[in-house]
Write a protein that binds this DNA or RNA. Sequence first.
DNA 1: GTCTATACTTGGATAGAC
DNA 2: GTCTATCCAAGTATAGAC
Lengths: 219, 219
Amino acid sequence: MAKAGATSKVTVSGTKKSAATRQALIDATIATLRKEGFAGASARAISDRAGLNQGLVFYHFGSVVNLLLAALDSVSEDRMQKYSEAIAQVSSASEIMNIATQIFQDDFDTGYVTVLVEMIAGASSTPGLGAEVGARIRPWFTFAKDALDKTFGDSPIAALMPSGDVAYSVVALYLGLEMLTHLDGDREPALKLFAHAQQMVVLLGALSAFTPTTPPASP
Amino acid sequence: MAKAGATSKVTVSGTKKSAATRQALIDATIATLRKEGFAGASARAISDRAGLNQGLVFYHFGSVVNLLLAALDSVSEDRMQKYSEAIAQVSSASEIMNIATQIFQDDFDTGYVTVLVEMIAGASSTPGLGAEVGARIRPWFTFAKDALDKTFGDSPIAALMPSGDVAYSVVALYLGLEMLTHLDGDREPALKLFAHAQQMVVLLGALSAFTPTTPPASP
DNA sequence: GTCTATACTTGGATAGAC
DNA sequence: GTCTATCCAAGTATAGAC
């Protein structure tokens, strides 16, 4: 829709400046959602953190909610990239638990899942926001399902529970763990669970050798 | 601290009136947290819903946060009562899954867990609130642990994972499921999971008959 | 096109009326 | 003791300056 051509060199340098401001606001929004939560993520709180005028939020994003969604998009893309790379290097069920533990720690340090949790919980306060946030969570169900299929696909329990349903609970558990961990700042209980899950996966691998679905090693 | 005696009949009727106002505010707070979330639970939004003057929030509770905590207390006590009664009538692992499914539906209908989720997520915005909310969640870990011990105590997996750690993840999963269910209003995915869990429990019960820990029936 | 100063609205809290 | 009218701070949004 907007004209783009050599007629306005101003637009080019201007666009560059605009992009920098937008990015600074998005970064400040992520930090604010982490530290002050959805309720504390006002245009003033965000722009103060970025050291920018409060009106810029509305000039660049139209509304606070739009900025929050832009920040959620930024985090989601970043995480999806990181998770995808991590899982690409993995094939066994045992390995994926190591990666998952590592990623959970990283998520907790960077506070990225907190951003998602705050947006989900905050969605109730603004009409229409729920649908927007929901659309941004959906890719994670698919991602979790693919990861489960890749690593547990030939396990006997895969036959008992559809991976799509399990993926839903994996996402739910991850969100819940993040909430509880963030609440008291103690990540130990969650890490213990990852360790237990690791054990279970190993055990499951040993058991599956005795089931008819997986013939005992034929090289 | 406050004088209580026959010298002031005004106090008695006054106290009664006060209690009614307090209760009306607490009820309105629960409804507001459910429908507008933590960010939307302002003194004005709450008092408007109750049809009362906004200043009463501060007269009766001192601050909005105090009222929110009073509402959380109210919900927590109510739920703990209901859950305890339900679990008292139950002994087998299979039965508890039925009860759990039923309670999840009830929670979703009444929106009680939403109140808790909103308070956890909203805690980030107010210094000190996290500790208060954390203290109100702790009883649920104990409750979940006791329920697990009661129903899965003699199961073989109980030996593999400490019930306290599992209780933590049960609470986390419950919170996560509530978040996702509330977000798009579709409870089917969560209910499917309860059904699958039910299946698993039955299967586990059958398996445990073959383990050395539980001798095969000696009446 | 980018940003700042200003207008208007909502929210938290209290002084004072009943 | 209970409640309301009023005050001031914080929030969203935009008109206008650069």
